[in-house]
Amino acid sequence: MKTITFQVDGLTCPSCAQHIEKVMTGQKGVQETKVLYNAQKVKISFDETVGNSSEYEEILNKLGYDVKSQKIA
């Protein structure tokens, strides 16, 4: 189990945060998604044997949120 934190750009409405949570939680391997709206961060806990963090990044980009930096722990 790993946690990746994306620092994103363009999170402007709280309802977007809910949408991102919904979309990301539905992805392969994702256990939990937490959107820190005020810090503009998306934290995803995932099973690294099933999911792939670069896919998550791609989806965030597709949703229109530019990933500025990321950190895996």
């Binding site: 977007c16 949408h19 919904k22 979309v23 539905g26 989806i59 597709k62 949703l63 229109g64």
Partner: peptide
Amino acid sequence: FKKAFRFVFLKVISI
């Protein structure tokens, strides 16, 4: 429209 379309794509009904 663009944003709406993006989310529909991922099966989310957005405002």
